[in-house]
Design a protein around this nucleic acid. Structure first.
Length: 426
RNA sequence: CGGGCUGUCGUAUACCGGUAGUACGCAUGCUUUGGGAGCAUGUAGACCGGGUUCAAUUCCCGGCAGCCCGACCA
């Protein structure tokens, strides 16, 4: 995994454009919003729209890197615009249909434009010159891009926003057999994304909406903040969205017969749809088959909400003191607290430790703030939730050692810097 | 989009038809330095518009904004 090293002041807490808060924001109930705002990760600009401060930006970046890493195995990355002309959406008749969710307006010349809530139309159009023959298929392409949705009700912090980043992958096939094979690969890739983000996700069958006669699949993470209700069998992994499920709460599992169906609240962190020819036909995305005939391309789309995923991680990984970031998405690997009491020798040692960690490529946030009490630094470290806490103080300096502690453990240990480096590198 | 609740220093809050108080933050000084330090002195506030009233931050109406419940959620 590529690691972005910012050697200079960006790793000093005093220079990180960061201020934590003691008080809970009064107008946020969702845990993810409370902790992310208090910890200085995000700032709310309006309902459903958040700014990402340096700390939050780094987490978002990490989450995107994981997604990108998995998606690169499935297709090439590209980028589509957010601003679309009305005419594009008229091809499928969705300009009117989507008007409640799509930001639509006129530019200065009176031309009607909209901000894309999704990109099936755009990608189908772009695919036309690329896909001409069965020999061009299958193909897949994805983007990580900002979506706009005029949600009737933005809610739950990062979980349902009006402007958000989505990874959307689109695949193109000559036949359903090819689609089925690929669809299954994406399913695996998605599960890998979520597990690398420290989440236990399960796949549920859901209604395909007006996209698909078949069921679509949703990737769910159990959390109280969730909006969806899933019927789940913990024994065999059977899971269905309550809306479409014929199973009943408390009844025996229709999958394995031995388990019992539980009702759990879940957050939908991803979904995948077999679109069939729903978009390719109106857009006339056709290919020539082996016999020389023209056929509509079979499509599927696959989405992951980046910020929702980040919010879900907070929902599922925190304690009473703050966030507990899984290592793979943490904004930094190590939080170095300088408890030097303004003692020159101690602060000199602390600086040496900091330089050494940097030199060895450890992503370290150095709490170098002056005049901030040790207690406050400890509280902030717990709130921000970086996996390793390293303390340098007169006590540790006396032994020429550092004190290390994992965010999710209670016990701290005194170590030499070298020993610590060996420990986290293995 | 229906219903409900709420708008007071940067943040969190209190009181009140007549002088807006507290805590945190921030600033200055002294002391302090292993779990949100102490003292002192400062700093800064009633969402917008209209109405009632001698007087409105307070009561009423409208708007705007935020949150919650529901509907919605390719």
């Amino acid at each position: 995994m590529s690691v972005r090293i910012q050697i200079y002041f960006c790793m000093r807490q005093s220079q990180l454009f960061l201020k934590t808060r003691k008080d809970f924001p009064k107008d946020e109930v969702a845990i993810n919003a409370q902790l992310l705002i208090r910890g200085g990760f995000v700032e709310k600009i309006m309902s459903g729209v958040y700014a990402f401060l340096p700390l939050g930006f780094r987490v978002r970046d990490r989450v995107m890197s994981i997604i990108r890493d998995e998606m690169d195995k499935l297709g090439a990355e590209m980028l589509m615009p957010a601003l679309h002309p009305r005419s594009l959406w008229e091809v499928t008749g969705r300009w009117k249909k989507m008007e409640s969710i799509m930001y639509q307006f006129k530019d200065h010349s009176g031309k009607e434009v909209g901000l894309g809530p999704t990109h099936e139309e755009v990608i189908a159009l772009i695919a036309k010159p690329v896909i001409e023959s069965y020999s061009d298929l299958p193909l897949a392409v994805y983007q990580i891009q900002t979506k706009f949705r005029d949600e009737a009700r933005a809610k739950s912090g990062l979980l349902r926003g009006r402007e958000f980043t989505m990874k959307d992958l689109y695949s193109f096939h000559a036949d359903t057999a090819s689609l089925d094979v690929y669809y299954n690969e994406v399913k695996k890739g998605y599960l890998s994304v979520f597990s690398r983000c420290g989440l236990r996700a399960f796949v549920t069958e859901a209604s395909g909406g007006d996209f698909s006669k078949e069921y679509s699949h949703e990737f769910m993470v159990a959390a109280d903040a969730g909006e969806d209700i899933t019927y789940l069998c913990r024994l065999c992994g059977f899971a269905q969205n309550k809306e479409i499920s014929k199973a009943k709460k408390g009844s025996s599992c229709p999958g394995c017969k031995d388990g019992v169906i539980e009702e759990v609240k879940t957050i939908e962190v991803g979904n995948i749809f077999k679109l069939g020819t729903r978009f390719s036909e109106p857009v006339k995305l056709l290919f020539r088959d082996e016999k020389g005939g023209m056929k509509p391309v079979i499509m599927a789309s696959y989405g992951i909400g980046v910020e929702r995923l980040m919010g879900t991680i907070v929902e599922s990984s925190h304690d009473e003191r703050g966030i507990v970031w899984p290592e793979a998405v943490a904004p930094f690997q190590v939080h170095l607290l300088g408890i030097d009491g303004e003692d020159k020798d101690v602060s000199g040692f602390c600086k040496k430790v900091y330089d050494r960690l940097l030199k060895d490529g450890v992503e370290v946030l150095y709490d170098d703030r002056k005049g901030v009490s040790p207690g406050e630094k400890f509280f902030d470290a717990d709130l921000v939730g970086i996996p390793w806490r390293v303390v340098v103080s007169p006590k540790t300096y006396a032994h020429e050692k550092i004190e290390i502690k994992r965010r999710n453990e209670k016990e701290a240990t005194l170590l030499k810097v070298d020993e610590f480096l060996k420990m986290i590198k293995k």
